[in-house]
Amino acid sequence: MRLSRRSAVALIMAVMSMTGSACSDDSADLTVYSGRIADLMGPLFNQFEQETGVKVKVRYGDSAEVAGAALEEGDKPRADVLLVQDAGNIGQVSKSGRLTTLDAGVVDKVPTQFRSVDNHWVGLSGRARVVAYNTDKVREDQLPPEITGFSDPRWKGRLAWAPTNGSFQAFITAFRVMEGDAAAEAWLRGVKANEAKVFPNNVAILDAVGRGEVDTGFVNHYYLYRARAEGQAGKAENKYYGAGDPGGLVNVSAAGILRGAKHPVAARRLVEFLLSDNAQRYFADKTFELPVVPTVQADPALPPITALARPEVDLARLEDAKGTVDLLTRLGVL
């Protein structure tokens, strides 16, 4: 017993000393809160460090979590740059006045529909809403020409959705903006009446569509290409929706600089870097997203972003995320 007590004390001391060393390392020149995971963003941050010599520290998390942390920190921000999965999250942070205005010179090359009106945030990569379908179960010409068609009883028991997913909610917000609240509500009621299967996320939907567990599902475009790259796509295929249809909304991952950031100059350089041709090509080649800088080509398998995104859908107008959550909650979808 005496021995075990001594060894316990030794263990505690060892752990304490390791903790001390973990705390003392604080030499970052730039801190990023990233709502996109290290597997996607890490290589870009490394490249930025190499090119500029600026040392970057990144806190990875869920988009809502890191945006939430930035909001809770308020005027005492610990991060310089906030980077999230979709325009809705960063719109909330912008609305509470936590972001600074980005230099027009940096963000001008991005079409206005992919950044906020006041340049508080800028899109980095585009992600189109699509309908994934199983080619054994459905022929492309059997799919409705507009997303509204899926509320038809013909699709009963053949749909999958992920109502808790941020991209799905942004799509509903776009639906409300483009077609009105009443139309959005009617569509949601119809799809719900069609007993759409609820999934926790897009990956699970694409997986189920690929295996034929469900005929069609509402997802983002790139999950198909990522699954294909890993040989996991099964019989899934994407249906892109055309101009003027909320079903083809192009949302963006986005970045902004926090008000009160300790390293504003380095932060500006990072945003500049993320919009550079190199970084944009990375999004096109590695994450199968759509570059927001029009001069950079998307993956040849994808339709060009200009064919998908319409100037009349202003992503900044997708700020009413709360209205969408309230609607989904009221309808019992969430």
């Binding site: 939430g68 995320a321 969430l334």
Partner: peptide, 10 residues
């Protein structure tokens, strides 16, 4: 979670 993640309304 859903309420918070959707709206960031703490």
């Amino acid at each position: 979670y859903v309420q918070y993640k959707g709206s960031l309304d703490y």
